[in-house]
Amino acid sequence: MTQPVSPPRGSADKAPSVSEPSAWRGAFGRADVRTLSLLGVLAVLILIGGITKPDEFLDTRNLQLVLTQASVIGVVTVGMTFVITSGGIDLSVGAIVALASVWATTVATQEYGFTGILFTAVLVGVGCGLVNGLLVAYGGMVPFIATLAMLASARGLALQITDGRTQIVTVPSVLDLGERDAYVLGVPPLVMVFAVVTIIGWLVLNRTTFGRRTVAVGGNAEAARLAGIDVRRQRLYLYLLSGLCCGIAAFLLIILSGSGQNTNGNLYELDAIAAAIIGGTLLSGGRGTITGSVLGVLIFTTITNIFALNNLQSDVQQIAKGAIIVAAVLVQRRTASTT
């Protein structure tokens, strides 16, 4: 019988730094170049903001606002990054956020207070993710189509629940979280949630078997299957995860806006995909970066803020966003071909 090879524990931990400096520097170097260039873009944007509107842009309140706005779409983007890394796509995130936010703010739900709202938002998100996951993983549907169908249905259901009306939140404990009194050392609770989701997302993608399986399925689904990975179950979990992130984002949006609307989360799917792609996650799957995605979100939110402060209309913003996506992908293609 061939025995499983047992790892020589003692030598393993220090080995990489001793015997393989070049490979590790290479792996780190590539990731670093990408992260650094994103940080560079962000720095340039902050510089532009600081020069054009020195008093308003660098004001603490404005920076808190930018980060708060980034939190909602940021949480959605973390989930989206997992799905894209696995070679999938989730077009329904915006619609799920809308449905979760209105379902959690109905009069009936609000009677159960804070817990009722949070629980409902998360449950609706996970439920929608479950349907997506079952359709893709076990129904054999193309992710684009399955989540497009979810987009349409969830938006429709959200409209049916609200009848087009804005549902005002009357639970004080929820509204209080958006007030300045709730800030800890100047950090809004929403931003803290975003930070926690980001850290957990990074750890799961980079340090757990779940993350490894995600990357393997995205890199080569057939090889993953033949290596003994349950590819379908993994896909189901990934859409569940994306739905969970949408539920959390919906709760943040409820705090932020003090209401639930069926128009919430409009075009979140495109913003989240764009942020993940400019961050360095491959749309074809097999490589994903949470750090890059979060930087992508911050870049987009900062642009929106600077444009708003300078009284530029949203049409100009849209054009600038489009140009940035094209530029980022072209730069990545060039660096990918030279390394």
Binding site: P4, V5, S6, P7, P8, R9, S11, A12, D13, A15, P16, R207, T208, T209, F210, R212, R213
Partner: peptide, 22 residues
């Protein structure tokens, strides 16, 4: 064989590298 160097889904990357090297 990821389950061999992971506990609760958490990968011990040192053990993984050592096993792969062996």
């Amino acid at each position: 064989s990821m389950s061999r160097f992971s506990r609760g889904g958490w990968i011990d990357r040192g053990a993984e590298l050592g096993a792969a090297r062996a």
